[in-house]
Amino acid sequence: MNLKDVQRLLQAEVLTGEELLDRIEIEMVCGSDLISDVLAFTKEKTLLLTGLTNPQIIRTAEMIELSGIVFVRGKKPGDDVIKLAEEHHFPLLLTKFPLYETCGILYSAGLKGCSELDTVGRG
């Protein structure tokens, strides 16, 4: 499934990266509001679902090469965050669903979590 499919399932608004959506394949998803957890448990090429909307979340995404971010429960980040993502050609979506429901929708559509696709894994 690609990000375009994710967008449809979540009835999400595209904040930036519209042109990238059908080119980015999503295999894994992670939902978290803790940056250290995202850094510790997320593989590269993962889609992040989060309620965090500060610029650090984009830095985090850059550091571990996430595929994109979906902001949940309609919490829209500031223009500075959207601009930062734009500069990095990094797609951002916004859905009205809360975190738990967003996870549920994507999980029932067949997307797995990071622990289920543990290939390399250290420590």
């Binding site: 509001d33 803790l34 940056i35 250290s36 957890d37 850094l39 510790a40 989060t50 965090l52 500060n54 650090q56 979340i57 250290r122 420590g123």
Partner: peptide
């Protein structure tokens, strides 16, 4: 509120 303060930073560093 920014998503830090889980107390996982140093343990993460140790793992990496």
């Amino acid at each position: 509120e920014m998503g830090f303060g889980a107390g996982m930073g140093l343990p993460n560093i140790k793992k990496c």
